[in-house]
Design a protein around this nucleic acid. Structure first.
Length: 493
DNA sequence: GTTCCTTTGAAGATA
DNA sequence: TATCTTCAAAGGAAC
């Protein structure tokens, strides 16, 4: 994890950059030989990588040296360890402040009660929400405040200190869903105008249009104000969506909550809970609604009308487990074969809970569109190379944002899927997940591409795996054969 | 339709 | 404990 101590050594992996410098130098030469149009394109693309790399120093040119220093001494790990240590000390508080001065943490004092007595959001809650979900209309945390906004059009930024460096003590939980997404704000992100902390927002507009939530959901009433409010589970990252299959089977009360890109990231599954829901996990009724909204319908009690206060409690998970257990008891009357077959069938149907995204993945998710827009590259592999280098070019503060986001994602993930382990997704454990073929990449392997691979337009690091001569073709496409290495040109004239 | 590619980081597995 | 392996996202290309 990033530190802000400004120590002399930069162990953020900047060693990578020398490669690009060398290549870029060659690239420039090569670019100069190309047409002006190509040069312009190359400049634009190169600028993607170069813009922040010009200050990077490194002398390493080997693949091995491109890797970060040993983890035990790495700046990231130190910070991460400190974070985790702090997280342990923080008694499970999700958004408490770790003791890292200058670290852009986003803290909320007490998310269990994000509402003020009048039903509006507490300022700090608004601040956090606007940080994490900028498209949230946190100003209009309640119908009242929304109406007030409508009338006065005057937010009260006096409460809002700023996106970062907010630090609040106190317990936090996942009751953010008591906040509401605004139906007025644009939900679809523009690729060029992405908030730095919006990687988690993938909701589509239609999913939050006023008419979309089932009418009966409107019955959700703020227990404090008595004002009906839609039970938007907006506190949950869209990385924890419902599985599409689950949504499709039954008009689940929150079935309209579907991530924009359609692919569930953290679909809840019964299989995700290898153990009963821990009683120690403090989840309030709001959280429970969220959880219930992400459970397959077969895990939710048959009544689909949500309780005004509660909607199903996390105990529902437990109770559902018990329910399943009792169901199994009943099923024991049937033949065991039938039961086994049914179990296997259900097991196959289980959507697997995906890993929480790490900092770099969050960064990629956010920046990919920008890179794609600025660069004509199509292949994700090439884009990821750019992103990887830009990641290293990021300042520690900027990286820290993503590390913090990733940390919260992990914590949220842990709360949503307490029994989940990354091992569950390993090939063999997850039905339907194909085992990844092991890459036969050997460090230090000779690389003719390296010699021929200036990659003029992208400042990409040299390809290390030359086992497949078709790589340049796959990498650049047929229309950019001038970027191919010699062997590839020869093979695919 | 499935797998590969490519990146970094987290976490499990293994020696 | 250190190292290795797998999997997260993405989407075009290859098979």
């Amino acid at each position: 994890m990033p530190q802000l101590n400004g120590g002399g050594g930069d162990d953020l992996g900047a060693n990578d950059e020398m490669i690009s410098f060398k290549d870029e130098g060659e690239q420039e030469e090569k670019i100069s030989e190309n047409s002006s149009a190509e040069r312009d394109l190359a400049d634009v693309k190169s600028s993607l990588v170069n813009e922040s790399e010009t200050n990077q120093n490194s002398s390493s040119d080997s693949e091995a040296e491109r890797r970060p220093p040993p983890r035990s001494e790495s700046f990231r790990d130190k910070t991460r360890e400190s974070l985790e240590e702090a997280a342990k000390r923080q008694d499970g508080g999700l958004f408490k402040s770790p003791p890292y001065p200058g670290y852009p943490f986003i803290m909320i004092p007490d998310l269990t009660s994000p509402y003020l007595p009048n039903g509006s959001l507490s300022p700090t809650a608004r601040t956090y929400l606007q940080m994490k979900w900028p498209l949230l209309d946190v100003q209009a945390g309640s119908l009242q405040s929304r109406q007030a906004l409508k009338d006065a059009r005057s937010p009260s930024p006096a409460h809002i200190v700023g996106p970062f460096c907010l630090e609040f003590p106190g317990q936090a939980d996942l009751s953010l869903h008591q906040f509401h997404l605004s139906n007025k704000v644009p939900v679809v992100q523009h690729p060029h105008h992405v908030h730095p902390l919006t990687p988690l927002i993938t909701y589509s507009n239609e999913h939050f249009t006023p008419g979309n939530p089932p009418p009966h959901l409107q019955a959700d009433v703020d227990p404090k104000t008595g004002i009906p409010r839609p039970p938007h589970p907006s506190d949950i990252s869209p990385y924890y969506p419902l599985s599409p299959g689950t949504v499709g089977q039954i008009p689940h009360p929150l079935g309209w909550l579907v991530p924009q890109q359609g692919q569930p990231v953290y679909p809840i599954t019964t299989g995700g809970f290898r153990h009963p829901y821990p009683t120690a996990l403090t989840v309030n009724a709001s959280m429970s609604s969220l959880l219930s909204s992400r459970f397959p319908h077969h895990m939710v009690p048959p009544h689909h009308s949500l309780h005004t206060t509660g909607i199903p409690h996390p105990a529902i998970v437990t109770s559902n487990v018990k329910q399943e257990s009792s169901h199994s008891d009943i099923g024991s009357l049937n033949s065991s074969k039938h039961q086994d077959a049914k179990k296997e069938e259900e097991k196959k149907k289980q959507p697997h809970i995906k890993k929480p995204l790490n900092a770099f993945m969050l960064y990629m998710k956010e920046m990919r569109a920008k890179v794609v827009a600025e660069c004509t590259l199509k292949e994700s592999a090439a884009i990821n190379q750019i992103l990887g280098r830009r990641w290293h070019a990021l300042s520690r503060e900027e990286q820290a944002k993503y590390y913090e986001l990733a940390r919260k994602e992990r914590q949220l993930h842990m709360q949503l899927y307490p029994g989940w382990s990354a091992r569950d997704n390993y090939a063999g454990n997850y039905q339907g997940k194909k085992k990844k073929r092991k890459r036969e990449k050997q460090a230090g392997e000779g690389n003719e591409h390296r010699e021929y691979f200036p990659n003029p337009c992208l400042s990409l690091p040299p390809i290390t795996d030359l086992s497949a001569p078709k790589k340049c073709r796959a990498r650049f496409g047929l229309d950019q054969q001038n970027n191919w290495c010699g062997p590839c040109r020869f093979k695919y004239p």
